[in-house]
Design a binder for these strands. Structure first.
Lengths: 227, 227
DNA sequence: TTTTTCTTTATAAAATCTTTATACACTTGG
DNA sequence: CCAAGTGTATAAAGATTTTATAAAGAAAAA
């Protein structure tokens, strides 16, 4: 999910359409403007994360629009223009444009330049954290917290917990768990499972004697419940 | 008065000469390197305000050099290349390049793009100093201080620390660290890692016997915590 | 050369896994 | 009701793996 918003200011409807399709299929949220005036108003009302600006607008000079935008807009502006003269490029860049692409442009390159411009400008993304009441699991950081304190889990304990979390609510049989975590040769070692279930409960349950998260389904296996 | 320093990494002597003259007449201070290796060393010893990198170096792939630089170098990198394929451009930009100019380029445009890159960098932030209690790490200056005293770290030790700092809080597996720092052929040399972790701890931890920053996750890897 | 850094080997310590032992809960048939 | 059988929980000892550290030899840099 990207959800960065991009404002396209261009008078050619086919270009706007192309950009909208291209950008939206890359998870950007797109708004459009066909004139300089419309562009300025849209940018002011809903400041986007990046602006794609055509220099050849009908109602105002593109360079002037750029200057006006830069009075207050600090995020990236990329120029798209049929003008390839050095004079135009230098002027646009010195007026505060972050990049300048000559039309017709290659969409892959445009997307890469957009990524480059947005990079670092975006707020830091957090990892997907699974929340189970007092229990929090960050799979990408391999961190498990209980009441906001980090719990140390061994490799096997963590593998077990992951199996449970990824199959929340489902009953996992002894055989299944043993095969997935220890390997196919261990499907009869139910005792292993009991030992590690006990250890896991001691670490993640508030009261290990009355487990809430890891419920035993006698004769079948165990089930993990989030709340 | 400009006084921003620019490092030119290019194997063609006439290009280097041209750039030197052009840049110096625009009040930039220029350093040069003819090979990837030389470029990396120069960049590390005297980090410039901007790097102009040619992708077609004789001793290493330009994309690889770019990746290596981006491990620690946070200021702008502009690619100069005879390669004009979309694939090369997209790859370079996604590897952390700020801009990409195809040779032969127009000097006026290059200067404008340099101004644009430096401008955006200055407005954003200064030296990104990471503060971890008694420990301070300046990635762009490659300086590590503990209790305000500079600590000498070897190349490998520093690379390790960078990996940790950039992934603060996350568990980095042995395989990952070995692959990133020593290369794919070393993923089984866990002992290397242990030796260097011990050395790093001796240098950055208050009490190496009770490490606070570099926490070992037995059977998995290590985790860096800033506190 | 001398110095620094990296690689390799050796060994002690720590952490984890496996195994054994025992206790508990629950069901079922006498 | 009890006693035997089945399935589960937990502690703790023993075995194994993993880790920490020193130190010596090799390679690279100054």
């Amino acid at each position: 999910m990207n959800s960065a918003t991009i404002l396209v200011i261009d008078d050619e409807v086919q270009i706007r359409k192309l950009l909208q399709i291209t950008l939206e299929s890359n998870d950007y949220s797109v708004t459009q403007a066909a004139t300089a005036k419309e562009g300025m108003i849209t940018a002011a009302n809903h400041p986007p994360d990046l602006i794609l600006l055509d220099l050849g607008l009908p109602d105002d000079s593109g360079h002037h629009v750029l200057q006006q935008l830069r009075e207050w807009y600090t995020k990236p502006i990329i120029i798209l223009s049929v003008q390839s003269s050095e004079e135009d490029i230098v002027k646009a860049l010195d007026n505060g444009a972050n990049d300048y692409l000559v039309k017709p442009f290659r969409t892959g390159e445009l997307l890469a330049r957009i990524r480059s411009a947005i990079r670092g400008n975006l707020s830091e993304e957090n990892d997907p954290v699974i929340d189970c009441g007092s229990l929090q699991i960050d799979l990408s950081a391999r961190i498990v917290k209980k009441n906001n304190e980090i719990i140390k889990l061994t490799t096997t304990e963590y593998a077990l917990l992951c199996m449970f979390v990824k199959n929340e609510g489902k009953v996992l049989t002894h055989h299944y768990l043993l095969r997935e975590i220890w390997g196919p040769g261990y499907i009869n070692q139910s005792q292993y499972l009991r030992v590690f279930i006990a250890q896991l409960r001691k670490k993640i349950e508030d009261d290990a004697n009355r487990p809430v998260h890891i419920v035993t389904e006698s004769g079948v296996g165990y089930r993990f419940v989030a709340t």
